[in-house]
């Protein structure tokens, strides 16, 4: 068997489904923390949703599991208590843009010095694939079996929501292939560098597959995110101060 080389801050593979985007994102974060030399003072804050599987022996960082929707204020609290630490919130689209929307907006409004990584898989992964504010028009989910009625529910784009507030950095990437993953990693790195430099609020949204709940194979789901989700959620750096 080929030797598997893990990044320094990754202890093991996680319990995520095959083709899930969370594991890739956690790995990218772990690599960035190490490369920036701040892993020793990093505090991860995870939502209780699928991202928190990083706390099942995967991530070698001190970490807090926050209530659904609350990783941003919890991270803010940890940073307030330990201003010299490097604190980030890793959460899903449902967490950040639905139940935790108020906390996201006001943290961005205050421009609090922290890093937020949102994994947007267009569904509520953990609870079995219900419709999220990010579900695409017509996308079938467990709670929109005929396809999302976008006239009734709309589609929430974080760029519309917070880019005019007090963000220092706001970007969206994907993890489709080596090149796009490297780009996303560079975005994550910038979001952490900003915190190190005390520059304020940085958020990177990562478009990611949830094959299980989209009822696709990992490859199909990857293609769906790359071709369909990017139509509504364009990639790029939207705020970079």
């Amino acid at each position: 068997m080929a030797e598997v080389r893990l990044p320094k801050r990754i202890m093991n593979s996680g319990g995520w489904c095959q083709g899930c985007g969370h594991g890739v994102v956690v790995r990218l974060i772990a690599e960035v923390l190490d490369e920036l030399g701040v892993a020793d003072k990093a505090i991860a804050v995870e939502d209780v949703a699928c991202g928190s599987m990083s706390m099942s022996g995967v991530l070698k960082c001190d970490a807090i599991m926050a209530a659904h929707g609350r990783p941003i204020p919890v991270a803010n609290g940890a940073k307030g208590a330990r201003p010299d630490s490097i604190v980030y919130a890793h959460l899903g689209d449902g967490s950040a843009y639905s139940i935790g929307c108020a906390e996201l907006v006001h943290t961005a409004l205050r421009g609090d010095n922290m890093t937020v990584i949102v994994v947007n898989n267009t569904v509520y992964g953990m609870t079995g694939g219900q419709m999220a504010p990010t579900t695409l028009p017509g996308e079938k989910t467990a709670s929109s079996p005929k396809g999302k009625d976008a006239d009734r529910y709309g589609v929430l784009n974080v760029v519309d929501l917070i880019s005019d507030l007090n963000c220092t950095y706001l970007a969206r990437g994907e993890i489709y292939d080596v090149a796009s993953t490297a780009k996303t990693k560079a975005m994550i790195k910038k979001a952490f560098q900003n915190q190190i430099d005390n520059k304020g609020f940085s958020l990177v949204e990562v478009l990611a597959p949830c094959p299980t709940n989209l009822h696709m194979t990992p490859v199909q789901c990857k293609e769906f995110v790359h071709t369909e989700a990017t139509k509504y959620f364009t990639l790029g750096e939207f705020v970079d101060k």
Binding site: P73, V74, A75, G77, A78, G80, A102, E103
Partner: peptide, 26 residues
């Protein structure tokens, strides 16, 4: 110390949760 007028009580208590986890008397 650290003071913030939070956007809601939900935010207020969850910040306290984060600070407590980090060892503060919050």
């Amino acid at each position: 110390g650290f003071f913030v007028q939070a956007e809601s009580e939900l935010c207020g208590i969850n910040m306290v949760f984060g600070a407590a986890a980090a060892g503060a008397r919050a």
